[in-house]
Write a protein that binds this DNA or RNA. Structure first.
Lengths: 188, 188
DNA sequence: TGTACATCAGTGAACGCGCGTTCACTGATGTAC
DNA sequence: TGTACATCAGTGAACGCGCGTTCACTGATGTAC
């Protein structure tokens, strides 16, 4: 396409473009990180040029905030399904699998972006907090007793921490030991 | 100092400079993150100009690798002391305190840099793995039974995950709930 | 429904900035004898 | 121990690059009548 050739899309198409950018970003940031993902990266991966980005988003932060929410939708839905099938143990088995650890597009934004999110702006943190609340609500269903919610939070912490650590360790034996140790711990 | 004024230091002084740069970087990265910390940032914080950096390090990665090791020394030593005084519960109380969560210079590189370390180069991962092994060894002393090491790994995962999540959440109530949930979970 | 005009999605060039890294420079320090 | 020479710690300017962001441009789409 040459410069100046008209490219205006209908409102419906533009909305789809916007959704595609957010979905692409949701995947990209979970695999590459917040700082390592550039606007050009995302737009190119979505099959667009970078110039049009600001027709859809105020700035990169705005996209990141929406991408966190979208990534959150996916992980909440996935966890909900697995809970329905096999409860907390099934969640732990899937979450703490080598498949999830090595996935090209990791599922969980907290394990992929955890430490970066803690240093992010208020809007991004707020989006992440909303996802966290939903995840905790799902997991609380699997726990019993007066401390069900606290236990759910702790179980999630264990999973996020273990997956994060397992990705740091390059020795396969030690990495698997981390995943297994957490899995066994959660079963009790 | 003007350009050309001689500034050569003795070998002993140069070694101290080098140590100071690493120590400054160890603090800086734990508070600002790996990507958000620039060579200029570290050198300026150490009271130097950036040009001399490459007299001490091959590149930024080289510094980061050493800084991880230095940060690791600190956290391993601190955890060792706390274990000697009050065992695992004391570690959890300190690690999962609001003080640690909000510290200008956080103690633990895994909570501060966890997700970034997973995407780092082999040398950095290797340095982090060495720290992790030492931390696990310390914590294994506090556990009993055939799965002592696995339990220690799981307890560390819980602490790293909970501290990471607590830093993402801006609502103080929810953030404290995460720390407390993990603390109570670890007591059992 | 048709007409007339304003809007704007997407392109691709361009902007300024900060980054990691390199370099020439100097005389105190280190080294070899 | 003293002498002669090479080394090099630290400075500050400079480099190229990639980043986030802005902009002029265009005609199909949206809107008002």
């Amino acid at each position: 396409l040459e410069k100046g050739l008209c490219v205006r899309k209908s409102n419906k198409e533009a909305a789809l473009t916007r959704e595609a950018i957010v979905a692409t970003a949701a995947d990209y940031i979970r695999s590459a990180g917040l700082m390592e993902t550039s606007v050009v990266d995302v737009m190119t991966a979505a099959g667009l040029t970078h110039g049009g980005f600001y027709k859809h988003f105020r700035n990169k932060d705005h996209l990141v905030t929406e991408a966190i929410a979208t990534a959150g939708d996916k992980v909440v839905a996935a966890v909900g399904e697995i809970i329905a099938e096999g409860g907390l143990n099934a969640v732990a088995d899937t979450y703490l699998s080598t498949n999830h650890r090595d996935a090209a597009t990791p599922l969980c934004p907290f394990a992929s972006l955890g430490s970066e999110l803690g240093r992010s702006g208020e809007a991004t943190k707020s989006a992440a907090t909303a996802v966290l609340e939903r995840l905790v609500a799902e997991l609380t269903q699997t726990a019993r007793g007066a401390e069900a919610r606290g236990d759910a939070i702790a179980a999630l912490s264990t999973m996020v921490g273990a997956l994060t650590l397992s990705r740091i360790v390059s020795d396969p034996g030690f990495s698997a030991e981390i995943l297994d140790g957490a899995k066994r711990y959660l079963r009790r």
